[in-house]
Structures are given as structure tokens and as C-alpha cells.
Computed example of a mutant assay.
Amino acid sequence: MVGNASRAAIISDRSATGLSAEVIAELVAEVGPLRHERHRARLTSRPRKRAIGAGAKHKLVFVDRLLATLVHLRHATTHDVPVCWFGMDRSTITRAVGEVRPLLAERGCTTAPGVRLRTLAEVIDHLGAGGKTGIIDGTEIRVRRPAAGRRDRGKFISGKTRQNAVKTMVVTDADGRMQFGSPTRPGSCADITHARQLGPANLLADGPAVEILADAGYQGLGAQTGGRMVTPPHRKFTKDAPDWYEEMYRRQRTAHSSRRIRVEHGIAHLKNWRALARRLGRREHISDTVQAVAGLLSHQQTADLAMAQQR
């Protein structure tokens, strides 16, 4: 078990976990009891019953389990690094990360103290209620190539980068603060196909009046949403375009890009967590990783904003 001095050093150094000490304390108070309840429920659901307090004792306390998970997500370190820090077997660290990561993914994105957004419908309702503009974009995460002989080996190859990847859809507000990170799809899935599967077109058509900015990969959804999803203008002339049209077309696209650039900043902050820069682990856990990191990033952004407003 890591000593109190070493634990305090990890918590106080924001570069180690990507989170401030205050946010880590809130995570411990929120996720710790939930993890304990699920652990007890899993034990009591087994056919073989044990007396309360019987069985092996966990030497790695929850705070250390959380810190090991945060360091793994922030720096994409192998589990051997926390093994050296915490003095545990590799299997213990692997089990700790596997327990904590889904709990972090279920938290959703924090947009204000006490306000959590867990689904795309909640994000659209939240943006509409506040009269805010949302920005949507897709991003790819490189993953390991599936084993030879698998039938679905080719579906992870991205048509854009020609590399094995998965795709996630990110929603931010007009300031680039994280609002939602979607479950992943194989890299061969187009942005507009992924959006149609998640259903923002139906939510926007039937929901509140809200403006969502998107790039050219989502062209076509604007007509389906009554103009609520705004994409760059279609090109009217394929050749021999008048000079006045070229200038107008360039100004319109530049103005649109200037409004939606903040989502690129949000994605950059997301991929500062190196577990999303390139995924070296199992692809089955990548959706939990995306949603866990999105929730942690939004929580820290909200805490930083509240601190800046108090000054």
C-alpha cells in the first residue's frame, strides 16, 4: 500500500492525474460509496454465501484504486507503473482499474455544480433551456489491429486516416466545454451515420429550439432538423463558378469554421488524456474510457470556471 506522503504527493500534483485535489476529493466522496455498494451486491449474489467480513481482505483502499485509474487514464501507462507505486500485484491494479473505470463512465458530464448530463437528450434539453449553442464533431482514436482471420477485421479501418481506429462523437458548448462523449463505433462508420444512430436529428426535430453547429460531414441533417443543425453551405457550382460566388462561399465557410473551432479545442483537451490519444488495450473498454474521461474533464472545467468566477 502506498504511504500517506506518496498519496498526498500524487493528489497535490495536478500533472499526475489531470485533476485538482478538490475534484479528487469529490470523486472519492461520490464514487467510493457506490463502489462499496456494488461490491457488496456482487458478493451477496453469489450462490455460495460467506459470513460478513469473511474472505480475502482488500489491501488497496479505494483512494489508491481511484488514483491508479486516474494515472492510467491520464498517461496511458501500463499497469506495471502503478504496481511500482502502490506495491501490489499487477492483477490487483488491473482489477482496480476495471472496477473504477465503469463507475466514472456512468457519472456523465458536469456542466454546473449539481448538474449532470448523461445522455444526448439531456444535453439538447440543457442547451435549449439555457438558450445556448452546441457544437458537434466526430473524432477518431487509434486502436490495435484485430487479429488475423477475424471476419470484422476490416471494419475498424478508417476511410480518412487509413488506420485502425474507433470513432466517437463529441458535443461541447460554444466555449468548448465538454457536454457529451458518445459510445464508440468502428472507424469505417461515417460521421453522419454515427449521428443518425445516436439520434440527434430526431431529438432536435422534436425537442427545444437549439442551434447545433457541425462540419461538412453532417450535411443533410440540417434539413431533417428544421435548420437547427447548422452545417457549411453546399457548393452550388462544381466548375466555372463566378468570382463573386467564390468570394461569398469562402466567407461563409470561414465564418462557420470560426464559430465551431471551439469543439476542436475541446477534443484536444480530451486527448490530452493519453488513453484517448492511442488505445493500446482492449477495444471492448474504449467506450467506457471515452465517457469516463469526458466526465472527468467536464468536472474539472466546471470547477476551474467556478473558481475563476469567485476571484
Rank of each mutant, 00 (worst) to 15 (best):
10 I>L: 05
13 D>S: 13
13 D>E: 13
15 S>V: 05
19 L>Y: 02
20 S>E: 07
21 A>P: 13
22 E>R: 15
24 I>W: 03
24 I>V: 14
24 I>H: 01
25 A>G: 13
32 G>P: 06
34 L>H: 08
35 R>I: 14
37 E>T: 09
46 R>K: 14
48 R>I: 14
49 K>G: 08
52 I>Q: 14
56 A>W: 12
58 H>K: 15
71 V>K: 09
75 H>F: 01
77 T>I: 11
79 H>K: 01
79 H>N: 02
84 C>Q: 15
85 W>A: 08
89 D>L: 14
91 S>C: 11
94 T>M: 12
96 A>W: 01
100 V>T: 06
100 V>N: 04
103 L>G: 04
103 L>A: 11
104 L>V: 03
114 G>S: 05
122 E>T: 01
125 D>Y: 03
125 D>V: 04
126 H>A: 08
131 G>F: 09
132 K>D: 12
135 I>F: 00
140 E>M: 14
149 G>N: 15
169 M>P: 01
193 T>V: 12
197 Q>S: 12
203 L>E: 02
206 D>C: 10
206 D>N: 15
211 E>A: 15
216 A>Q: 08
222 G>N: 08
226 G>A: 14
226 G>W: 12
234 H>T: 11
235 R>N: 13
240 D>V: 09
241 A>E: 07
244 W>D: 14
246 E>D: 14
249 Y>T: 04
250 R>P: 00
250 R>Y: 06
255 A>K: 08
274 R>H: 09
275 A>R: 15
276 L>W: 05
282 R>E: 04
288 D>T: 10
290 V>C: 05
293 V>S: 06
295 G>N: 11
297 L>S: 10
297 L>W: 03
302 T>A: 14
303 A>N: 07
